[in-house]
Amino acid sequence: MNEPEQSIILLYLILVGVLLTAAGLIWLERRLLGLWQDRYGPNRAGRFGSLQVAADMIKIFTKEDWIPPFADKPVFVIAPAIIVITTLLSFAVIPFAPEIEIVNLNIGLLFFLAMSSLSVYSVALAGWASNNKYSLLGGLRAAAQMLGYEVFMGLSLAGVIMLAGSFNLREIVEAQRNVWFFIPQFPGFVIFVIAGLAETRRIPFDLPEAENELIAGFHTEYSGMKFGMFFVGEYMGVTLISALIATLFFGGWMGPLLPPLCWMIIKTFIFICGFILVRASLPRLRYDQLLSFGWKLMLPLALLNVVVTGAIILAAS
């Protein structure tokens, strides 16, 4: 099998895998939230409620897909697509196993950061195009949050890049053959997880949605599958950040006994469950708390982490 054919097959496999994971997460999240709140969650449709996803799909596809007359129609329609496209594109650079990777970009990490920055356009444009003051507030919040968090998200990865000496995700994984980067880069790991939470706009950083102050924030006016796109986009974002945490800090596909892909999937799912656990336990931050936390605490910490890591590498060499 030659190279382009292989990568096209891989592309479809990863696309289907990611979409199935995102759909399955709807069920997983509800079950896990139920577990942690001493209840069951969906348990009627199918065994353990596993057909809940199918039921939700049928529901969301058959709902009226309504565009409000006051909305900016082209932007309103394109906004939900952006989040799905940018998140799916980010999956292209993630090495799931030594052979399973769509493109081996030498700037893979930068590509991911660029795509995650672009995904804010989805939320900001959705808020703008809805022509609704709550949606606009949600979109503005998303933009401000993204500005605040994108900066130290990039900086938190600087330590990893310095240790691995590469932006290539495959080489970063290879560099963790001896020791996983979450040990030398523990502050970077913590900061990246926090930034990742903010990046996916989940509790405690779900201010763009903020049901109890902004109704549903940027997707107040969305219904049917357009809303579903935001939903799926959020879950794909969670999968993406979890996969990246596994890749960058926990040795990616590396692990004993099991095949590499299994390890990657296990690690990813552990972090997905971690994301859901955080959602189950923490309240939403206030908006000013969020921004001052980002700019005044996380950014200096990330910078300090870069300086200390750099100094240690310099001293060692």
Partner: peptide, 17 residues
């Protein structure tokens, strides 16, 4: 707080089916 919530993994569920 996160640890407290995590400990609920092994609690009995309150729901009456």
């Amino acid at each position: 707080g996160i640890w407290t919530v995590f400990k609920h993994s092994i609690r009995k569920r309150e729901t009456v089916l």
